[in-house]
Design a protein around this nucleic acid. Structure first.
Length: 488
RNA sequence: CGGGGCGUAGCGCAGCUUGGCAGCGCGCUUGGUUCGGGACCAAGAGGCCGCGGGUUCAAAUCCCGCCGCUCCGACCA
């Protein structure tokens, strides 16, 4: 295909190299994932975008239940006084809460916060449900919406209202809570990598970056194609902070009254933004088959003489593949095949099957991979098996490409000068030693706009050496390696 | 929240400087011919010019305020 044609096909999308932000916005709108709603920072998630979310829910919900959790639902409204109980928590969330002051035409005696997260209301309920060690562990998850009045919004990445899941668990001991926190972090990591094909690094957040009210926050961080990092999920060990202020106490095995240990963890519709920014290209989305609403699109090549034969073969092919494959037959006759090719590429459908007179004559279908653009001929006999293995290959390839990109864009500077020039010229993840002082973290942030994304676990040391050394900022000799990056 | 840009048909835009019939391309509707990488012909439909106020005989156009989107910062799960 000529360069000119290549350009023509994507004229509706700003190339990534020109303006990555604009590219992202073009994609989410033109692939019909969302549309702007008439409230600032709010969006309608359109069926095609929501179908991805439903797949995320289905695949993650299964894992959450397999690890022993049950789903429940708690109120959208939280009495203002409840949110204010935990000092750090209220300090963290107060600036971004929406308040309901009126109901039923009358001023409320106590204002209601629209949940920015549900620790307060859930802990309030938990204090009534827990009396004995026999009530523990309490393992509950909730799928819901939350509202945070953000100043700067971006579709899927940071919206005023968003959808997520939040797990809230209660345990007898600190060790159990820590184990749960790490277990769910591992679930997230496995889920995001194997289903979304998004490689992540895991680690501990710094004190300044941790969840408001938590003892410790662990995170999975992904690297976007523009070299910026995205926090893709977090798991918090809440310690006894909330138990103390919400009075979650239980009689332990020796008859002693103890405060419980808690965790909370969540991922949101932000994951959809990650999929877009990790895999997409100038022609549009590239969806990992495991979460793609449409895994295979069948495009008939209709000609005057062969119309019925072709349509029949398409229907037949669809029936052979679905289920289990999510197949879409695009039988619209008002669009040319070429137009459809471009549209489904924009929408990121992993595999396209073209069926025309020539394919029928040769006894198969033409297949085109979205990830590589590769064109293949698949004989009818082993079509289901070939489609199945191609989808698996595409899933695998998307992960490999993203993982290679992440590795290629992880740097290990040996001086502060190299550190700053890497941030200016290449971005990406920068593994550098840090002494642990907040003043150095702030210093780097103020000068370079890069933040510490996480303090990685030692076993994740696949990107060069994890040896301790002088702090990249102050030069003191006690720094340990942490990941810096500019983040969304 | 501060600074810049933008807001005119579903989408992309022109018109605004210098006030005077609301325009173009794509898309949409209907009919027909087509269909292997965004087909073609013909006939149509579609407007609170973001919202509110002001100036004027007259406002998309000038002035003031507000809202929204966006970029750069600040703030932040």
């Amino acid at each position: 295909m000529s360069a000119k044609n290549e350009k023509e096909f994507v004229k509706e999308v700003t190339p990534r190299e020109v303006d990555f932000s604009q590219w992202y916005l073009d994609i989410v709108l033109k692939a019909e994932m969302m549309d702007y709603a008439p409230v600032k920072g709010c969006m309608a998630i359109r069926p095609y975008g929501y179908a991805i979310w439903e797949n995320i829910q289905r695949l993650l919900d299964r894992r959450i239940k397999e690890t022993g959790h049950e789903n429940a639902y708690f109120p959208l409204f939280i009495p203002e006084g409840l949110l204010q109980k935990e000092a750090d928590h209220v300090e963290g969330f107060a600036p971004e809460v929406a308040l309901v002051t009126q109901g039923g035409g009358e001023k409320l005696s106590e204002r209601l916060v629209v949940r920015p997260t549900s620790e307060a209301i859930i802990c309030n309920m938990y204090s009534r449900w827990i009396q004995s060690w026999r009530d523990l562990p309490l393992l509950v998850n909730q799928w819901c919406n939350v509202v945070r009045w953000e100043k700067n919004t971006r579709p899927f990445l940071r919206t005023t209202e968003f959808l997520w899941q939040e797990g809230h668990t209660v345990h007898e001991t600190e060790e159990e809570a820590e184990e749960e926190t790490l277990k769910m972090l591992a679930v997230y990591r496995e889920f995001v990598q194997s289903e979304l094909a998004v490689p992540v690094i895991t680690g501990l957040k710094t004190e300044s970056e941790k969840f408001a009210g938590a003892l410790r926050t662990y995170t999975i961080e992904a690297l976007m194609a523009d070299g910026r990092a995205l926090q893709a999920g977090t798991s918090h060990n809440l310690g006894q902070h909330f138990a103390r202020v919400f009075d979650i106490q239980f009689l332990d095995r020796s008859g002693e009254l103890k405060y419980a240990w808690q965790t909370s963890w969540g991922v949101s519709t932000r994951l959809i933004g990650a999929i877009i920014m990790v895999h997409g290209d100038d022609r549009g989305l590239k969806l990992p088959p495991r979460v793609a609403p449409v895994q295979v699109v069948v495009v008939p090549i209709i000609t005057k003489k062969q119309r019925e034969t072709v349509l029949q073969k398409c229907a037949e092919t669809g029936e052979r593949l679905s289920p289990p494959v999510r197949v879409k037959l695009d039988l619209r006759e008002e669009y040319s095949p070429g137009w459809k090719f471009n549209e489904w590429e924009m929408k990121g459908v992993p595999l396209r099957l073209e069926i025309g007179p020539r394919d029928i004559e040769k006894g198969g279908v033409t297949a085109v991979r979205r990830d590589t653009g590769e064109k293949l001929f698949l004989p009818q006999e082993d079509l289901p098996a070939r489609v199945d293995s191609l989808l698996a290959e595409i899933q695998d390839n998307l992960f490999k490409l993203a993982d290679r990109f992440r590795r290629d864009n992880t740097h290990r500077p040996s001086s502060y000068e190299e550190f700053t020039s890497l941030l200016e010229e290449k971005r990406g993840l920068i593994l550098a030693n840090w002494c642990g002082e907040e003043s150095c973290e702030d210093g780097v942030k103020n000068k370079t706009r890069a933040t510490i994304r996480c303090m990685p676990f030692a076993e994740d040391a696949e990107n060069g050496n994890m040896e301790a050394g002088p702090c990249i900022y102050c030069g003191r000799e006690k720094g340990t390696p942490v990941y810096f990056a500019r983040a969304y």
